[in-house]
């Protein structure tokens, strides 16, 4: 099933961040967003996830716009943003389990996620003892711990060492081989094959007044 957006414009903090943006992701596809800081990559990802509303435009799956049934849309996606959604007083296992179970993850999946992100041995460690890179890996473990066709990733490799970046690359490839799709905002080359590029600069609104042509 295709995930796409048509003619999206987004106003944040009384500023037009981008306008007239179109995108589409097919099963097995990956969309890579690039652009400077403040170009609206995160805004676009949040609009795609349904956390923010596009000011104008439509975001949809082949079977209907996401606004028709937000819960169904949420069931189809994993969103890994800048914030890690982890509690310092909960253990690695407990932190992961909460989000995995919420999305219908099973014990085997959770165990597999722990293994794939090289968090084995840390299960009982409280979150407050994790390093930035380990916290990032714990966030990414959510991708494996329960299934969803669409991954929305905001700078997924931040704070990761080279080995972990390779692991993430492998995860994404595996996900795409299984028919999954990914939207990734990144400023570093991830080395993914066969991606669609989307440069936010092409949709920058510039200095236009959002009240343009009104009075």
């Amino acid at each position: 099933m295709k995930f796409f957006g048509e003619n999206i414009s987004c106003v944040r903090g009384e500023r037009l961040v981008f306008r007239g943006l179109n995108f589409a992701v097919e099963p097995g596809g990956a969309l890579v967003l690039t652009g400077n800081n403040g170009s609206g990559k995160t805004s676009l990802l949040r609009v795609m996830a349904g956390l923010n509303r596009a000011t104008v435009g439509k975001i949809a799956w082949s079977d209907g716009p996401i606004s028709d049934d937000p819960e169904k849309h949420h069931g189809r996606l994993h969103f890994i943003g800048h914030l890690d959604a982890q509690k310092p007083v909960l253990s690695v296992g407990e932190n992961l389990e909460m989000w995995a179970r919420l999305h219908g993850g099973t014990d085997e999946k959770i165990a597999m996620a722990i293994k794939k992100l090289k968090l084995d041995g840390f299960e009982d460690l409280p979150g407050r003892y994790l390093s930035a890179g380990q916290r990032r890996r714990l966030s990414l473990a959510r991708l494996v711990a329960s299934e969803a066709p669409l991954w929305i990733l905001d700078e997924p490799t931040i704070a990761l060492d080279e080995g972990s970046v390779a692991a993430v690359r492998a995860l994404i490839s595996e996900h795409r081989d299984a028919g999954g799709m990914a939207v990734i905002a990144t400023n570093v080359e991830l080395g993914l094959s066969d991606t669609t590029k989307l440069d936010m600069r092409d949709y920058a609104a510039g200095q236009d007044d959002i009240w343009e042509g009104v009075s």
């Binding site: 819960e71 949420h74 509690k87």
Partner: peptide, 15 residues
Amino acid sequence: YEDGSLEQLALGPAP
């Protein structure tokens, strides 16, 4: 809200 859990709760399958 500060650690992103609320975001994840909002993106969960429950309303």
